[in-house]
Design a binder for these strands. Sequence first.
DNA 1: CTAAACTTTCAAAAATAATTGAAAATAAAT
DNA 2: ATTTATTTTCAATTATTTTTGAAAGTTTAG
Lengths: 168, 168
Amino acid sequence: MEFKEAKNKFVQTWGALGSQWGINKTMAQIHALLMVAHEPLSMEDIMEELHISRGNASMNLRSLMDWGIIYKELKPGERREFFVAEKDLDELAVKVAQERSRREIKPALKVLKEVSTANITNTSAEAKQFKDQTSKLYDFVLKADNMIEKVTEYKDNWLARLVMKVMK
Amino acid sequence: MEFKEAKNKFVQTWGALGSQWGINKTMAQIHALLMVAHEPLSMEDIMEELHISRGNASMNLRSLMDWGIIYKELKPGERREFFVAEKDLDELAVKVAQERSRREIKPALKVLKEVSTANITNTSAEAKQFKDQTSKLYDFVLKADNMIEKVTEYKDNWLARLVMKVMK
DNA sequence: CTAAACTTTCAAAAATAATTGAAAATAAAT
DNA sequence: ATTTATTTTCAATTATTTTTGAAAGTTTAG
């Protein structure tokens, strides 16, 4: 397999994976490209390599920066902006976990708390089961979210440490 | 908040969450509905409660069964089929983790192995960095996937156990 | 200050994914 | 064997998401 072919396969696969996890394909592809790049890429570079429009590149680069998993890099004497990806995988996983917690899990927890503690007058078995199950769900998700917080505090090498603990 | 309102809020929220994680909205909503139902629901019940078509209900019920997180239940003397959700949250999480591993992580690992070990003639710094980073990614994802396998073997109360380990 | 280089925005278009509904299939009852 | 109840399939439609591209916005240089 030639380099270009391998790189393309990697970028495509990463993009498809992203889609399945609710991340738009182009965003995941740009991320893939930057992860394996050995030097900062300009927007122009990215547009060219992925055959995408300027607007698309701009918007997805911003999203990736909002996730905190790519950075702008300014080259002295250069007018345009360059981008690099966080290449440390522990750090990447921590960032993704923290963002998903903040954007999705925390708001879901809020709703779960609301509905599970709502003062429901209805005394049917159905209403009882609802309260019971949503309470359990709240506890479960809260526990999982706390674990994410705890685990991602380590920053360095958290996965390896966790594997150790689990294996022993 | 009244029961119907609370239930609706829960179902809607679960559906939106599903979307963000790459699961179609209706599928997540059906799952939510069955999770808090105190008795098995027929397809008719589900169609009515969610205002969806028969075809949509049928297809998404099948998907949920393929994931192994809802079951068919036959009532004696009843012609039509009823459905119940796995209500044990540990079991639910294990099933979801195992399916995602099987469907998405394992195939991704295969590609990562391929591209990271490809016999690339190109000796540029770029090609070198590509091999290096994809190898690291392969190791990382493999480790994470192994952890999922290990953790989900417990079946019972795996999250609580993991939390214990992490906290201590 | 003005032009040139570059980036962002956003309405419209295109692509993708989800949903419908009716016909076909299946299974049970008479 | 035929009718009736129920589920599945899938082509067509509808809804949602993504992408484009040109105009507006910014920033640096001269």
